[in-house]
């Protein structure tokens, strides 16, 4: 293969990895801390992408598309934060210790939320104008790389760094990391873990919603059901990376994103997705706890 193709595929694959990471990291933390499989996480993503579409098409009073996009990111983040908070506070919290009910509730929220968005804005794909800058290309090693790809990559890396800093440098982060390992012991140290639950859901919602913004740019449009499709790959990323490990999730997102791009390009559309699933099966057979996971659950 030519170097140009390889570079383009790599940048695209890394961009996809960024989108996967943003949705998978929250999922992984929520699961690690609370043992909750949050099926509504795809909805958080969809909320983010529709917030982008909404701002980009309805905020005509902001002339500059670049500025409008910046507003879209903030609006999406705010919506994601709110939806995550509401999900934990009013739905999941009532059923601590009852994992099946929690899963069922997030499932119901996910389906009705998607249908709500579909009912409001139709199930047809919607497109929106992007800042002119995004459509420019830069030459990297002879390959023409769209700026939007690089931007997606940059935002994902910044958010990864921010998340790791938060987890490593703040007291809330410390409590979350400790809680992922041993929730009861954190309580036994006099810390109200339930506050961290809400926080993790809100952060997860925010990250997934920004993932939705980037996903809308990456796939050049929005549809209500898209979040669920991405959620499936986020699950794969979470399991391969090791439940509860942010670093593992990042690593596995890169692995999955690149594999998918390379194989889809060289072997045909769809084969890359299949390969990723085979990767998952191999991980389960060889290392059920995931790449950086500590214990099998």
């Amino acid at each position: 293969m030519s170097l140009q193709v390889f570079v383009l595929l790599t940048v695209t694959g890394l961009g996809l990895a960024g989108v996967y990471f943003l949705i998978a990291s929250g999922l992984s933390l929520i699961f690690g801390l609370m043992d909750v499989l949050n099926l509504a996480h795809g909805l958080f993503f969809t909320v983010g992408s529709y917030a982008t579409w909404w701002v980009m098409t309805r905020f005509g009073f902001i002339d500059s598309l670049a500025l409008r996009f910046a507003v879209a990111v903030i609006v999406a983040a705010a919506f994601g934060l709110a939806v995550g908070w509401i999900t934990e506070r009013f739905f999941v919290r009532r059923f601590y210790g009852d994992h099946v009910t929690q899963i069922l509730i997030t499932l119901g929220l996910s389906l009705s939320g998607v249908a709500l968005i579909g009912g409001w804005f139709s199930y047809d794909p919607q497109t929106f104008p992007l800042p002119e800058l995004f459509r420019r290309v830069v030459l990297i090693a002879g390959a023409r790389i769209p700026v939007s790809r690089l931007l997606i990559l940059a935002i994902s890396v910044v958010l990864l760094a921010a998340l790791l800093t938060f987890l490593r440098r703040t007291r809330h982060g410390l409590i979350i990391r400790a809680g992922v390992e041993n929730r009861e012991m954190v309580q036994a140290m006099g810390i109200d873990v339930a506050k961290s639950f809400t926080l993790v859901f809100a952060i997860g919602g925010l990250l997934a919603a920004i993932g939705g913004v980037l996903g809308a740019v990456f796939f050049a449009g929005v549809t209500p059901e898209f979040g669920l499709n991405v959620l499936v790959f986020a699950f794969i990323v979470v399991v391969i990376g090791g439940l509860g490990s942010v670093e593992g999730t990042a690593l596995s997102a890169v692995l999955v994103g690149l594999t998918q791009q390379y194989v889809n390009f060289f072997a045909g559309a769809g084969i890359g997705d299949l390969t990723v699933v085979i990767l998952l099966a191999a991980t389960l057979l060889l290392r059920p706890q995931g790449l950086l996971g500590e214990v099998a659950r």
Binding site: V239, V277, L284, P288
Partner: peptide, 17 residues
Amino acid sequence: RVRGVAFAMVTLAFAEA
């Protein structure tokens, strides 16, 4: 090979493939 929630994720991945 895995139980509970991980089992749910894996079965989902297989079906989605």
